[in-house]
Design a binder for these strands. Structure first.
Ligand SMILES: [Mn+2]
Ligand SMILES: [Mn+2]
Ligand SMILES: [Zn+2]
Ligand SMILES: [Zn+2]
Lengths: 143, 143
DNA sequence: CATGCTTTTGACATTCATTTTCAGTTATTT
DNA sequence: AAATAACTGAAAATGAATGTCAAAAGCATG
């Protein structure tokens, strides 16, 4: 799984003529060790703990590369911080975002996905990606 | 229509003990004269053209009030600028956003809305609001 | 309509996430 | 090893949005 992801990135890097660097290896390792929906700052702090030398800019730049490589997906919720989540090949999901405790519940709904395709088709629109976020209170926070 | 919206705002202002000011009147007039999805900066520039005195902060503050009053809805697309659109009572729609020409197509789909409610219910989640944005290329930009 | 109290305003400073810059470092090719 | 090009990180810059605060304006009261 992790090796597979590293291979995906290496192949992407090779195809783009990118160099293999210590920083990219470290950032990838640490990104792969995180759970869903890490903010750049969270990741940066985690990286800095073991590798004090690595700078903000490099983390930002590298996460964008992961995103291009198809390893990561950028998520923009409503708190002004960009988050990244792991991409699982062939899978897609959307989010229920709790504004009480900031937790995120993932869901998939094929019918919604298909309806989106229908709507786009009806307008001659070519879908690149989409975001469906439902904001509210999770079961725990409703009490 | 416009008078009705002004009344909604006046009632809201009254209920909140807000004062009636020249600036709020002007900003409301100009907001009501715009079409969908104006960015704060666009609106600010339009306002400044006829009323050079009005400041950025006031425009930001006032748009938030319109939003609270139920006249306007905040929209956060992927360009880092907050936009506002007109709220039509009892109506809701989502957006197809063209990344080629920045145009926005609105759509409504009751089935999607209901499926969202089902999903939320299944997770014991209380919906406050949601956003569904489909990014891609409009018919014109696909050519 | 003068007074006094409270809200509002706007210039300016500040914040905060992200991006840019650029000189020094490092990876890769020869 | 030298040449070349990409990469890095510190610091500065950016840009949207918010906070500050003294002056201005709205509103209630006598
Ligand atoms: Mn997710
Ligand atoms: Mn709209
Ligand atoms: Zn919660
Ligand atoms: Zn277009």
């Amino acid at each position: 799984m992790i090796l597979e992801k590293k291979k995906i990135f290496n192949d992407f890097a090779a195809s783009k003529g990118l160099r293999s660097t210590r920083q990219r290896d470290i950032i990838l390792d640490i990104f792969l060790s995180t759970h869903q929906h890490v903010s750049v700052e969270e990741l940066y702090l985690k990286i800095k703990a073991s590798n004090p030398g690595i700078g903000h800019a490099t983390v930002y730049r590298t996460l964008k590369l992961f995103s291009e490589a198809g390893l990561a997906r950028e998520i923009l919720l409503h708190d002004g911080q960009t988050r990244y989540e792991h991409v699982v090949a062939g899978e897609h999901h959307d989010h229920l975002v709790c504004t009480g405790c900031n937790s995120i519940i993932e869901f998939e709904d094929e019918t919604i996905e298909n309806l989106q395709k229908d709507i786009a088709a009806r307008h001659g629109f070519l879908i690149k990606n989409h975001k469906l976020e439902i904001y509210g209170l999770c079961a725990a926070c409703r009490q």
